[in-house]
């Protein structure tokens, strides 16, 4: 599987416009995330944060009108969601779906195989155990049906467990911190920080500065009305915290 992580890949989004149900959401968005970096994406409700994450992952509900997305050499927009996953992209969902009768562990095992990250059953259970420990859960958690009856916090932890196991090169976290208490937030941040490497990058969508304090992003982007309006240093987080987004209107 290490062929995946050996090469460094840049995420490059060029002039992306996308709509859903005839409604334009992204309008000429451009963004670049370099390997080894963590980028924060902040912005008001309805600014297009979740849409951007879905479009990168390939959700069929969104129609891309213009623009291109590259991950390394590959152009993503022609690839299926499964192929994008195999290219090393991972989306931690804001609202993970439930699948009754399918255990989290079975699902993970199947995903790893589908992504050609072949592990022997022994290696698999070892890695699973380590990953479970990182999210503060034991084996019984992985034997539960995928997200069925999970609390909000458990769903987020399950997303992070998948992130840890699938070892993508680019993680997009869509408000993974929302609804988490302080302890859970620390668990999530620690897990992401443990993945930090020159090959790994992350795009972290959040409303809350707390998560960003723990993650220490390299770059912060502000999105409004479907495009990046400002990119800069983590200083921007403080500005948003103190002033909200009202100043964007000026």
């Amino acid at each position: 599987m290490n062929t995946l992580t050996e090469q460094k890949k840049v995420l490059r989004i060029e002039n992306l416009s996308a709509s859903t149900n005839e409604k334009k959401i992204l309008e000429g968005l451009s963004l670049e995330v370099k390997p080894g970096e963590i980028h924060a994406l902040m912005g008001p409700n309805g600014s297009g944060k979740s849409t951007l994450s879905y479009v990168i992952a390939g959700h069929p509900k969104y129609k891309v009108e213009t623009g291109r997305i590259f991950f390394g050499e590959k152009e993503l927009l022609t690839l299926s969601p499964a192929e994008r996953s195999k290219e090393g992209i991972f989306l931690a969902f804001q609202y993970p779906m439930e699948v009754a009768g399918l255990s989290l562990s079975q699902f993970l095992f199947a995903s790893l195989k589908a992504r050609n990250q072949n592990l022997s059953p022994v290696e698999y259970s070892k890695e699973l155990k380590t990953a479970l420990a990182k999210i503060g859960k034991d084996a019984s958690f992985a034997s539960r049906h995928l997200n069925v009856g999970f609390s909000g916090g458990e769903k987020k932890r399950a997303e992070i467990l998948q992130l840890l196991m699938l070892k993508p090169q680019l993680a997009i976290l869509d408000e993974t911190d929302s609804g988490l208490d302080v302890d859970a937030l620390q668990v999530v941040a620690d897990a992401i920080n443990s993945l930090r490497s020159p090959e790994f990058s992350a795009l972290v969508i959040t409303h809350y500065p707390k998560m960003l304090e723990l993650l220490k992003p390299d770059v912060v982007h502000i999105i409004a009305n479907g495009k990046i309006v400002l990119s800069g240093s983590p200083e921007l987080i403080k500005k948003v915290e103190n002033e909200g987004y009202g100043w964007l209107e000026k």
Partner: peptide
């Protein structure tokens, strides 16, 4: 989509 985003066809 959720399952496919993890690599499954």
């Amino acid at each position: 989509f959720y399952l496919m985003s993890r690599g499954l066809s």
